Amino acid sequence: MSVFDPVKGFGVTFATMFKPVVTEDYPKNPEPTAPRYHGRHQLNRHPDGLEKCVGCELCAWACPADAIFVEGGDNTEEARYSPGERYGANYQINYLRCIGCGLCIEACPTRSLTMTNEYELADDERQRLIYTKDMLLAPLLPGMEQPPHPLRLGDSDDYYVHGPELLRQKLPLTPVQHGAAR
């Protein structure tokens, strides 16, 4: 050990004191995320407002962290929430357990479940990190109707096969267009 070793250490400290700071001003100026960033989950809707989730529970089975709870319910002609025979009556994602792997997204047969770019999921109360169906559902866009309501886009095949085309062509749907889309 040399007598000048402590001075060399202070030299490193003094050299970095006058360099510009690289710390981001996160809460005030958050950086945008990458377009394909996997953040909070979202339950999507069809162009008429019906839910895409058919309550099949495949997302819950695919989750390695056991963070998803789905309880399916049966649709009736009086109360229809999705175009299928069933819908997700009770849907919860526990973000205390979720590891953000995206396996639930791959398992979803109707593309009901996707992930948004929202990444601020921290909270100081554990119960608020269990997101329920009303917190996960995509908002209603103009022309959409709050379920339950009857099928508006024709046969159930139209919902799955032609759904993306109808979404591009007919949004926002007006009540007059709902009848014409059949």
Rank of each mutant, 00 (worst) to 15 (best):
T110G: 05
T76A: 10
A107D: 02
G55P: 08
K28C: 01
I105K: 14
P83W: 14
R80P: 00
A79V: 10
Y37S: 15
H38D: 02
R40P: 02
R86E: 09
K52G: 02
A107V: 13
L50P: 07
Q42S: 14
P35Q: 02
R97K: 11
S82L: 05
D66Y: 14
D25S: 14
N75M: 06
K52S: 10
E85A: 08
W61L: 12
C56Q: 01
A89T: 07
D66R: 09
C53H: 12
Y91W: 12
C59H: 13
L103S: 08
E78K: 07
I99E: 10
H38R: 15
Y95H: 01
P109W: 03
A79N: 10
R40G: 01
D48A: 09
G55E: 06
P109I: 07
V70M: 11
E24F: 15
R97A: 10
L43C: 15
Y91T: 00
G72D: 15
E77M: 05
E106R: 13
A107G: 07
Y26I: 15
E24A: 03
C98N: 04
C108Q: 04
I99L: 10
P27K: 00
Q42K: 14
A65K: 07
G39H: 02
G88K: 04
G49L: 00
A79Y: 11
E57F: 01
A79E: 04
P30V: 01
T23I: 13
R45C: 13
R80Q: 06
C56L: 00
A65Q: 14
T33I: 14
